[in-house]
Amino acid sequence: MAGIWIVAETREQAFELLGAGRLLAPEMETTVTAVVAKGSASPQECIARGADEVLLLAELAPGEPFGAQLPVIEQEARASSPHAILFSATARGKETAARLSARLAAGLCSACTALAFDKATGSIVMERLAYGGAAIQKLAASAAPVVITIPPRSFEPAEAMDGRQGKTRELPAPPPSAVKIVERKPKEKVSKDITEARVIVCAGRGFDKKEDIALARRLADALGGELGATRPLTEELHWLPEDLCIGLSGVQVKPELYVGLGVSGQVQHMTGVRGAKVVCSVNRDENAPIFALSDFGIVGDLYEVVPKILEKLET
């Protein structure tokens, strides 16, 4: 039957992936199938947003990870041979997509940021970053299926339309998985979504200790913005929540103003702020790469410079 498939674990993922899927389906004159976890987006919601068919994943037994659904998804995919299968590039999505690709001997475009169907060649063309963000890799898939993962919030979610119809089918429960979840430690608090922030003050490794981040927060408050961070602060030191990590392995932001404090300006981080209107920085090393990647910046110690900036802002 072919078609475009989306596989979603949450409602937000389903809507965004349907939005991405609808970029392809009309051009390819094909249908959209939404494979969704029960309790995420409802079949009606998926159909209104462009799905022609909804396949409901069975509820998992306690302790079964999302990856347990793999054999069920594989079997359905083999039966209907979709052209493309879209997943969200979340931890579970990336793992499941890669494992499914191996089983189907399919190509996989990881962290795809642009997507189109090229009628002339009959192939799906995709873009992603390579070399830490120093390069843009353009991939073409002519063989089906191609599996694609999409970083959350890269595409517009699909809007609901009136009068749409579609079928719904429940999928069987998967066999038990070899990997078992023995404990879940939910995150205490989901932090702010910085992808829509107008102003971001980003703290880097130039801060000496966790308490000092208060200085960056003060500047963010003074500028009416949010706090962001480089990966060492969220990933290695755990001074700030992971959702605040900007860059290749974090989020892509597009503020009107980005202020980097004690950020060296490695490409993996700076690729995340390519959409910023104005980039400025404070770094004590005049040879730090961030200066060439900023509109303007101060060469100096952030502990001396930031209080002065705050003072000046008040006058």
Binding site: A135, K138, F291, A292, L293, G297
Partner: peptide, 15 residues
């Protein structure tokens, strides 16, 4: 595979 450009004007100011 093309190079992406992140370069900006890069004005350096004293502290």
């Amino acid at each position: 595979m093309t190079a992406s450009s992140l370069e900006r004007t890069g004005e350096k100011l004293a502290a």
